[in-house]
Design a protein around this nucleic acid. Structure first.
Length: 830
RNA sequence: GCGAGGGUGUCGGAACCGGCAGACGAGCUGGACUUAGGAUCCAGUGCCCCAAAGGCGUAGGGGUUCGAAUCCCCUCCCUCGCACCA
């Protein structure tokens, strides 16, 4: 038995001392950039992290062995809320907490022997890094993509900060799960909506991304094609309304404005309903976001007392204010078409608003008087003035042409996605590089003055504004333009900005004159394989794509998409539940690695489930992986022939040697394993790759139990060496050790990835399954390459088949059909 | 409600293109070796049946096919995402 601890520390030291995984650009080699989403330094590494990094490391080591120049870096996403929470709880500044966590986690990570290029380690909370995050902010500012506006925003009362829309999940803060409140605040935004169309369209080119992630982004972007139509208010004011069903314009029987709509107050001036409307708005504004937008919430509306004119039909229709209309989406006003929209139908029934059928179904059976639900399909336009008789899809186009011609509306594409709110009322982040000057207004900090240093060591209090907003030495500065006394912006940048460009930084992490070297990006990017949790499908992954496109437009990077291939790995669960401190089912990296070692841990995690599926943690399973590695160790390192007495491997003498094992079989399974493991790693089926290695090992085990004279040492050694090479990406320490003990002076990775010999894979005899009416009745062996006729001949020689089908000519007569699948089966149909 | 993914032994999971269902591992049962075994090795292990023969089996029902875990239709259940988006 081998000592995992000793071997693992030996090889970790070897890789460190030899800088084995320190890389630089080398145009003579194909490159591979493997990246796992970098770590938030929360303090403790659990097995979920390990799984993520192990998947990446396995693939990177495989690529190394295949002669690739592999960039495999790691670092720390070190800004963020938890450091401040911890600071409050422990009364230590966030910087101290963060640095000590990083120091601890770095050692934990290193104990797993990942092939990271540690010379490229980065930390987003270091000035050398966040200087460039601030530079990125200024770049967007310069390009008109960063701006400040007063807007209703998501406020997390627990985190004391605003959140971007992407960071609110079902009305709750993505991080702390608190109910998010709506507040009106002046905030900094990135104009991601300018990129909506490209972010959507380019999804089509991301062949290496899982479909579900692309769909999530597509839904998030939420493109709707329709028309904006200007209804006319009582005083001639334009009330633009967005619809995707402009073909139903003649069916509009009312319009509804969002309570926040600025026109509401103007419209109700002098209306007898004014007070009622104001009371309604007041009531709605009291409701939480959750209550107001939940599916079950009753749709409520109130009449304003005034009427609008439908600019297409000329109809006079009531104007209402409704709680279900979202001010931030499109124009914040909708037209009500109860005949052809479910929601409008319910609303109209409730308030006794008229219902008009303007689209007929195929049977022409719809009747305004007797409708029991909206007809939302397409059909023939009726009661629609000059458009009557058109098919609705054609009508959509005609109506857009008509309203554009008349200047009463326009074709319009609307997106659900909003601009990215990036300011945070927090301390532990990169300061927004803006100065507020009494004379000049908001002034960007000149690039040469970056970074705007974040003062460290400040005390964080549980309540009130962030320490930064109270720290005078930080706040007070001078205007870079006019030199007057000025104040710094005290909000910090959303940490998702820090992580939206780090993969470029890794290509040249120590560059001081730029965020990254363009030639380094040119060589390494895009990331060839990016691995992380699916929870970032529409946060990090969307932001990163956006920032990449901005940098591309600026001519700084050569790629328009950052990640060529994406793998969203499943969670590690225990008893079917996600590991969490509150459930007390967390398995930490330390406990498992100190007990079983890195190789065992890695092999178990790769074997127990496919990477993209959830993995059920099982200590028994870990033990199984340990047994496997120990067996391989014995098979590879122990001598076949005992010098005297009993062969220790062959076991005792009254055991029958396994007759299934043979040298030919050994070579066959060896080469088949090369083929299978290679293909499996290529398609990220790491679990079945491991199972194939187990089968190879099982066969070697049988082979070793053969009588000594049956053992071919050359074949055996080939099998052993192959096993070690193929297993190395999964269990690198023990494989490096075994390789050395096999007498090699290079390392197992330098030795390269084995190639299979197609000749050795072929079987001489092939098992053919015989079915009768689709049921398996017998199996026969035929020589490889037999013709169909030869196989059929053999099939009818089978006694068991004869029993069922009968013998002789009349038996053949009963056979209706014989289906032959080459080298697989014969099905006799009676 | 909409969208996506999934449902296979006792458990984790295989079966890539429609062709031997259950690879590999775990667990369990029996055995060998042992002072001992939670080490190691061997054998067995979907269900019915004493066994054989045979039958039944991939959530349930129907269909296509010589042949279906795989393709199609319906139903049920689970997970995830979005959720009044006009």
């Amino acid at each position: 038995m081998y000592d995992a601890r000793e071997i693992e520390s030996k090889w970790q030291a070897f890789w460190r001392d030899n800088e084995t995984y320190v890389v630089s650009e080398d145009p003579s080699k194909p490159k591979f950039y493997g990246l796992e989403m970098f770590m938030y330094p929360s303090g403790d590494l659990h097995v979920g992290h390990l799984r993520n990094y192990t998947i990446g490391d396995t693939v990177c080591r495989y690529k190394w062995a295949n002669g690739y120049n592999v960039l495999h870096p790691t670092g720390w996403d070190a800004f963020g809320m938890p450091a401040e929470n911890a600071a409050i709880a422990r009364k230590t500044p966030p910087d101290k907490w963060t640095w000590s966590n990083i120091a601890h986690m770095r050692e934990q990570i290193k104990s797993l022997g990942f092939s990271y290029d540690w010379s490229r380690e980065i930390c987003t909370a270091f000035p050398e890094y966040y200087k460039w995050t601030q530079w990125l902010f200024l770049l967007l500012y310069k390009r008109g993509l960063a701006y400040k506006k007063m807007a209703p925003v998501n406020w997390c009362p627990h985190c004391h900060t605003v959140l971007a829309n992407e960071q609110v999940e079902q009305g709750r803060c993505w991080r702390c799960d608190s109910l998010v409140e709506r507040r009106h605040m002046e905030q900094w935004f990135f104009k991601i909506t300018d990129y909506a169309e490209r972010l959507l369209n380019d999804l089509q080119n991301l062949d290496g991304w899982p479909e579900h992630v692309k769909i999530m982004q597509e839904n998030w972007i939420g493109r709707s094609e329709g028309a904006e139509i200007d209804f006319i208010g009582p005083r001639g004011e334009k009330i633009p309304v967005f619809t995707t069903r402009q073909d139903t314009i003649y069916g509009v029987t009312y319009i509804v404005l969002a309570p926040e709509h600025p026109l509401v107050e103007q419209l109700i001036q002098g209306s007898e309903y004014a007070n009622e409307v104001r009371a309604f708005i007041e009531k709605v504004s009291q409701m939480s976001e959750m209550d107001r937008t939940s599916e079950v919430a009753e749709k409520e509306g109130v009449f304003t007392g005034v009427y609008a004119t439908n600019p297409v039909s000329g109809d006079k229709i009531p104007i209402l204010v409704g709680n279900y209309v979202i001010y931030e989406y499109a124009t914040g006003a909708v037209m009500g078409v109860p005949g052809h929209d479910e929601r409008d139908f319910i609303f109209a029934k409730k308030y006794g608003l008229p219902i008009k059928v303007v689209i007929q179904n195929e049977e022409m059976t719809l009747d305004s008087e007797q409708l029991d639900g909206a007809y939302t399909g397409s059909g023939i336009m009726v009661n629609s003035g000059p458009f009557t008789g058109l098919f609705s899809e054609d009508g959509k186009k005609k109506i857009v042409e008509y309203i554009e011609e008349k200047g009463i509306g326009r074709g319009k594409v609307t997106y659900k996605m909003r601009d990215w709110l990036i300011s945070r009322q927090r301390y532990w982040g990169a300061p927004i590089p803006i100065v507020h000057c009494p004379n000049c207004g908001d002034v960007p900090v000149p690039e040469e003055d970056l970074p705007v240093y974040l003062p460290v060591g400040l005390e964080v209090l549980p309540e009130g504004p962030s320490p930064l907003a109270r720290y005078e030495p930080f706040i007070n500065t001078t205007c870079p333009v006019c030199g007057a006394a000025a104040k710094r912006e005290t909000d910090t940048i959303d940490t998702f900005v820090c992580s939206s460009w780090y993969y470029f930084r890794f290509t040249s992490p120590h560059e001081t004159k730029a965020a990254f070297r363009q030639d380094a990006v040119e060589y390494w990017c895009p990331v060839d394989l990016y691995i992380g949790g699916v929870e970032h499908a529409v946060m990090h992954l969307l932001y990163a794509r956006f920032i990449t496109k901005v940098l591309y437009d600026e001519g700084l990077v050569s790629v328009e998409e950052p990640f060529a291939n994406l793998l969203t790995q499943g969670m590690v669960v225990r008893h079917g539940a996600k590991m969490s401190k509150s459930k007390g089912n967390v398995v930490t990296a330390d406990e498992i690695v100190s007990k079983y070692g890195a190789d065992v841990t890695r092999v178990f995690m790769m074997f127990a489930a496919p990477p993209e599926r959830d993995l059920e943690w099982s200590e028994r399973g870990v033990e199984g992986a340990q047994r496997f590695l120990r067996r391989v160790w014995r098979q590879v390192t122990e001598d076949v022939v005992a010098t005297e007495g009993e062969n220790p491997i062959k076991g005792n003498e009254n055991e029958q040697p396994d007759v299934d094992a043979s040298t030919e079989g050994l070579l066959r399974i060896t080469h088949r394993s090369i083929k299978k493991v290679t293909e499996d790693i290529e398609r990220m089926a790491l679990n079945t790759a491991v199972s194939q290695l187990m089968e190879l090992s099982n066969y070697i085990g049988k082979y070793l139990r053969l009588p000594e004279e049956c053992i071919d040492l050359d074949a055996l050694n080939q099998a052993r060496e192959t096993l070690v090479k193929l297993l190395n990406p999964f269990a690198p320490h023990v494989c490096h050790e075994m390789w050395q003990r096999l007498g090699n002076s290079d390392t197992v990775e330098q030795a390269g990835w084995p190639q299979f010999d197609p000749e050795l894979i072929k079987e001489d005899m092939i098992t053919i399954v015989i079915q009768v009416n689709g049921k398996v009745r017998d199996k026969i062996l035929v020589p490889a390459g037999s013709t169909d006729d030869q196989v059929i001949q053999k099939v009818f020689e089978s006694e068991r088949i004869a029993k069922i089908v009968g013998e002789g000519p009349q038996a053949r007569g009963k056979v209706k059909r014989v289906i032959v699948v080459k080298d697989k089966l014969v099905n006799i149909v009676l």
